[in-house]
Nucleic acid binder design. Structure first.
Lengths: 229, 229
DNA sequence: CCAAACCGTCACGAAACGGTCAACGAACCG
DNA sequence: CGGTTCGTTGACCGTTTCGTGACGGTTTGG
C-alpha cells in the first residue's frame, strides 16, 4: 500500500555511503546517494526522498550549507552525520532545523533505527495534500498525476498529462514546436504530431474547444498556456 | 528587510482561533482572524494575508465555498483545518487548489510549521514577473512573445513581432533596409516589402498611424524607433 | 517650379500554417 | 492471445500571413 520510502545519503566517503546503502536497502528503504552537495541537490529534486542523511564535513559546500539550501524549499527531515561528537551544539546553535544527529561511531544498524524513528515522527503529518497547482479552472495533483476541472477528474493520457503539466507550470511562456519535440519526443518527430496532441488536450480541458482559452496558439512558433483565460 | 508575514485564521471556534493566533505571533507572524466567511472575505481584501488557514466546518458558508470564492481572485496559499481525517480525499477531488491539509489533532506548533512550509514553497515562485521591456506606451513580454499597449495585448503577426522587438531593443538606432532584409528575410527581398510591414506595424502600435511617433522613417536609409516619442 | 526618387496605402493571390478527422500500427493489459 | 488504449501519420479544408503590383502623396535637389 504505502510505497517504498526513499532515503538520501550524502557523504564524500564512498565506503560509508555504500555501507549505509546496504543497511537501508536491507530494511526495505530505497537509497539514493550523492557524494557532494551539487549532486545531492539534483538528486533531491529528482527523487524527492522522505529523509536525508547528511555528512557535515564535505569538500565544497559543507553539510551545514547544504542543509540551509534544502530548507529553503523543503521540510524534509535531515539527520546529520559527524565524525566527532563536538558538533552537536553547533548544529543546535545554528538553528538549522536538523532533526537528529548521529556520530559516525554509531553502528549502521543504529543509524537505520534513527531514520525509522524520524520517519515515524513525521509520518502522521503526511496525510498531506500534495502540492497542487492551480491554473484557472484546472488543478493538477502531481503525486497522483491527476487533473481536475471544476472538481471532475479528467482522463488524460500520459503525453497529454506531461504536456499540460509543463504548460501549467510555465503559464504564458511560449513553447516552440522544437522545444516540445525535444522534451517529449527525444528531439525526433513532426510538428504535426504536436498539433494533434494539443487538439486532443483542448478537447478535454477547454470549455469550447473551438475557441480555446487555455492553450493558445502562437502563430508560426508554438503554443502558450493562459492561466487566467 | 522582509516585512512581517500576515496569516489569516478562519474558524468559528474562538478558542482555536486564539490558540493559533498566539502561536503564530510567537513565531513572528502577524495574525488576522475571522469567525465566518463574510468577515474573512472582508479582512482578506483589507489585510492581504500571505496565507490562509481555513476551517472546513463553519456556520453559513463552508470552508470549501469560501476557498472557491477566494480562488476566484487570488492565488494565496490555503491550508484546510478539519476535525476528522476523512476529508482529505474530498479536498483532492474537489480540486480546490488547497495547499495543505491539517487535522485539528495536530499540535499548534505543527500547524505553524506547515504554514512556514507553504510560505517557503510559494516564496521563490512568486517573483515570477517576466522580464518586461518597456518602451513608452508599449511593453514587450519576450517569454510570451506578447506586446501590450496601455495594458492591452496587441495581436501581432510573427514578422511584426520580430521587427518590433528589434526596434524596441535598440531605440533611436537606425536600421537600413539592407540590415532588416538581412536579418528577417535571409538577405533576399525588396525594400518595398519592408515598407509594407512597417506600415502594418504602425497601424497597430501607433495612436495616429498617419503621423507615426514610434516608428520613424529616415529618408533614403531606413527606420528608427523612438522610445520616448 | 519640376522631375525624380522615395514613401505610404490598398487590394489581391499564393503560400504557409493550424485544426480536424480517420486510419493504421505499437504498446499495454488482462 | 484477443481486445483495448495510445501515439503517429496522412489527407483535407479553412484561416492567417506574406509578398507583390498599382497608385497617389511627399520630399529632395536643382
Amino acid at each position: 500500500m504505502t510505497e517504498r520510502q526513499t532515503v538520501m545519503v550524502v557523504d564524500d566517503d564512498p565506503s560509508i555511503v555504500e555501507l549505509l546503502r546496504d543497511f537501508l536497502e536491507n530494511d526495505g528503504f530505497l537509497a539514493v546517494t550523492a557524494c557532494d552537495a551539487e549532486e545531492a541537490l539534483e538528486k533531491f529534486r529528482q527523487d524527492e526522498p522522505q529523509c536525508v542523511l547528511l555528512d557535515i564535513m564535505m569538500p565544497g559546500q559543507s553539510g551545514f550549507e547544504l542543509c540551509r539550501t534544502l530548507r529553503e524549499t523543503s521540510d524534509v527531515p535531515i539527520l546529520f552525520l559527524s565524525a566527532r561528537g563536538g558538533d552537536v551544539d553547533k548544529i543546535r546553535g545554528l538553528g538549522l532545523g536538523a532533526d537528529d544527529y548521529i556520530v559516525k561511531t554509531a553502528s549502521p544498524g543504529e543509524v537505520v533505527a534513527r531514520v525509522k524513528a524520524v520517519l515515524r515522527r513525521y509520518r502522521p503529518s503526511r496525510p498531506h495534500v500534495p502540492p497542487m497547482l492551480q491554473a484557472g479552472r484546472l488543478s493538477l495533483d502531481f503525486a497522483a498525476r491527476a487533473v481536475y476541472a471544476d472538481g471532475r477528474e479528467l482522463p488524460l493520457t500520459p503525453k497529454e498529462y506531461d504536456l499540460l503539466r509543463l504548460f501549467c507550470e510555465n503559464p504564458r511562456q511560449v513553447f516552440t514546436y522544437e522545444q516540445l519535440l525535444d522534451r517529449f519526443w527525444d528531439g525526433v518527430g513532426d510538428k504535426h504530431t504536436v498539433r494533434v496532441h494539443i487538439a486532443r488536450l483542448r478537447e478535454k480541458i477547454e470549455i469550447d474547444p473551438e475557441r480555446p482559452r487555455y492553450l493558445a496558439n502562437v502563430w508560426g512558433v508554438g503554443y502558450r498556456f493562459e492561466a487566467k483565460p
